[in-house]
């Protein structure tokens, strides 16, 4: 079985797994990193959202063979360390607004929010919010909008 090496949450990891296994299953089933959730495996729901070299990506739709040894994958578990704190400002905002209901979508929502705010360089407007595709079946969308701009202000 091929060995795949990459940087996960700041640490070099190696896994023996077939080339075509999607990164989501490498993280969850092989490495036991369960923050990224399965909601569809179709790059639709965005519950699995993580960062690849600082940009949002959907590990359910990337094969492990396409990840290079120098690639840095950040899951929700590694997000605070990217800012050298116990919590990322976006997580703080999520707590302050008390966004989560069941919480299942929230790691993906937070990872998406951080990437969008970084890409935009600041707060999002209504059109930006409207373009977020992450599903929240508990319907926390309104608090997500509130939390994103509160988090953006502190990023």
């Amino acid at each position: 079985m091929p060995t795949h090496t990459f940087v996960l949450n700041g640490e070099q990891v190696s896994v023996d797994v077939a080339d075509d296994v999607r990164v989501l299953w490498v993280l969850r089933d092989v490495l036991g990193v369960t923050g990224p959730k399965y909601g569809c495996g179709l790059e639709v729901c965005r519950a699995c959202t993580c960062h690849l070299n600082g940009k949002a990506f959907h590990p359910c739709s990337v094969q492990i063979k396409d990840i290079q040894p120098t690639d840095e994958i950040t899951t929700i578990e590694g997000l605070p360390a990217t800012v050298g704190a116990d919590l990322h400002p976006m997580q703080e905002a999520w707590l302050d607004v008390d966004v989560a209901q069941c919480g299942y979508c929230q790691p993906g929502q937070i990872m998406t929010a951080v990437a969008l705010v970084k890409a935009k360089g600041g707060a999002l407007d209504d059109a930006d919010f409207d373009a977020i595709r992450n599903v929240c079946r508990c319907g926390t969308y309104h608090r997500i909008r509130e939390a994103i701009n509160q988090g953006a202000a502190n990023m």
Binding site: D20, R22, G41, L42, E43, L52, K55, A56, F57, H58, P59, C60, S61, V62, Q63, D66, A115, L116, A119
Partner: peptide, 11 residues
């Protein structure tokens, strides 16, 4: 089947 082109959609 799950898609394989996720790297084309990073942001």
């Amino acid at each position: 089947q799950s898609p394989t082109d996720g790297l084309a959609h990073t942001f």
